[in-house]
Design a protein around this nucleic acid. Structure first.
Lengths: 197, 197, 197, 197
DNA sequence: GGGTAACCGAGACGGTACGTCTCGTCTTCCG
DNA sequence: CGGAAGACGAGACGTACCGTCTCGGTTACCC
């Protein structure tokens, strides 16, 4: 894709300011919590003007969404490991590790909450976060299907709903994270092949 | 337990006003959405003073939580129907019907979002809504366990996490409600007895 | 005028409560100041209901006006003492003493302020306080006029304006009270007979 | 004194808004009276936000004090006119004219009343209004003293108390303004030289 | 001595302004 | 011309009192 955009006139966006804003947002939300996080506060902490924040991000949730990518490794492994069970386990271990990363769980809870309030942000959050992780899991299930290594009636979409349902329900409703027993139970639930016998 | 409270001095709380406030809150949230719902707006619509709202409910979310009980039938059947499968089906059908009730799904999404922001409300929401429904499902699973009519490794708590996880994930992340296929898939997932063969 | 009112049916007004309210009002105004004095506060301090206060006094200023009479001796001597100078001196000494009584000056300042805001109270304050003291001074001046013991052009009304003007201006604008020098200067100003020589 | 303040960053104060607020305050107080004058009302009438009013004035009384200077000519002549009597007459005529200016007397009554309630405003009212006019009168008396053109025992401070006492007492307690007879009587009272004969 | 009327403390009610807070925009100057 | 500083219009927040209106309960007169 060639650069069809104008070749950038005037002063260029300050990368330093961008990082200062993202860092300030992430720190502030851990300190005061998402509800008391304000654009004014972020700008002040970053030594930036409010307008600079508004110029590049539409809401504080979007700042945080970008800050999250800066702070936490959002990548998830989808490498072919030979069996559905192994790949599912890798995925769940990755997910549990992400949630255990300092500050990540509260930020995700806040972003999911914000997504309920703001329909525009909901779309950005879905496309920029939820669907990416979902796609990884669906890839795994479909690869298993191709292998014949999967319960018959389990579609990728339904499996994703069950897995992410459990993860998010734990975050949002019970404030407990996934532990080894949960992962084992989930794997058992999704990999048993009752119809095969 | 006898009434140890003082025998009610002063003017009594107005039930008429209480209903007007709850109705106003429920109507307003369907009209303008939860973020634009304000205590001022509720009071104005109800013909009540702001202080009257604040006197009885700490936040607008609490008003809505109580309004929900007024508007929608929150009861869930836990009657013994002879088999785990039948009772689970009844529970899921009840839950799907509740969600399909006009205005209920958006209100629940908003309340769950609010519960992420406000730790005090989170407790009230959990105790006043989430745990009640959860208890019903756990009752069903435990009755099945007593009957020997249940997959071996499925605990009531884990089953509840999976079921409510799916329901809430659908509401919060996909905006789709449970349909018959979902219910069938969920029942299949939870009732197969792989260890029995 | 005979008592045309109905001969008092029902429970009689509680003198104890009346005194409790007046005392509470006077104490509270010295503690928190007139602006933070509230009917609710008076009632609470007196152990009375708000309605009981509203039943007998239209405003907090009226409570305070009556409380003033309870706490401070508002009487002023108009006895014939033989000379204008002696009677004027007695009046001014009385007035200075009243102002020096603990709590009186702040209450009077507040009542005069309230009289500027509330036209109804203004009339009650004028009739119930200002005019009574003014009448005393005018009596003195007129008695002096009858004796021929007074500067020619000094009318009672103008003398009263000058005297009360000075007293009130001191209270309201300078927060200084009348001292002996002021009284002497005022007496000199009003008793010199330049035209007589 | 050089300007030690920082050279003004950010958006400058809007003079247009300032005038709109002062005008709105003055108009509203004449329409509804000082007690029903509210900051909210002033802001609404001026098309301004409440915060803009609060940013620049601590109370509604301060808005009115500044509005007064905008609407009425508060200047008072202290020019040397050769005699105490002539200068005193000029001062009293000026003062009577100010009071007769539309809306001025009610505003002054309200500000004096407010000064009784709010100690902080009292100081600002004293320094910003009362003392300025007082200084003018004291200048006149002292110039007369230098000329030997003044009753022996009359100090400037006492003369000011008598003059302003009369003026304010008329405004606050009698709702009558100074007329020609009052001015004549006051001049006679202050200029007679009984000791000279 | 029962009936009835006015009082009492308590406190909920509809209102309304308070002063604060944050929003997102606009304006100004500096680099 | 990007960015900081910060004033601006807007409007909800939660609080405080207002003055009114029930309540249940207490006197005190009247028949």
């Amino acid at each position: 894709m060639s650069s069809a955009t104008t070749p950038a006139r005037g002063r260029r966006r300050s990368e330093q300011t961008r990082l200062a804003i993202l860092t300030a947002a992430y720190e502030l939300t851990t300190e005061v919590g998402y509800p008391d996080l304000t654009i004014e506060g972020i700008a002040a902490r970053a030594g930036a003007g409010k307008q600079t924040v508004y110029r590049w991000w539409p809401t504080k949730a979007d700042v945080l969404l970008e800050a999250l990518a800066l702070k936490a490794d959002l990548k998830v492994s989808t490498a072919d490991q030979g069996s559905f069970e192994a790949e599912l386990d890798a995925f769940l271990q990755d997910s549990a590790a992400l949630m255990a990363f300092p500050g990540v769980a509260p930020v995700l809870r806040s972003l999911m909450a914000e997504a309920q309030r703001d329909a525009d942000f909901r779309r950005r959050f879905r496309d920029g976060f939820l669907l990416k992780r979902r796609a990884a899991l669906e890839t795994i299930v479909e690869r298993a299907a191709a292998r014949g290594d999967k319960p018959d009636r389990l579609t990728g979409a339904f499996a994703a709903d069950v897995v992410f349902g459990l993860i998010w329900y734990r975050i949002l409703a019970t404030e407990r994270l996934l532990d080894e027993d949960d992962i084992a139970a989930l794997e058992q639930l999704l990999t048993e092949h009752p119809g095969k016998e």
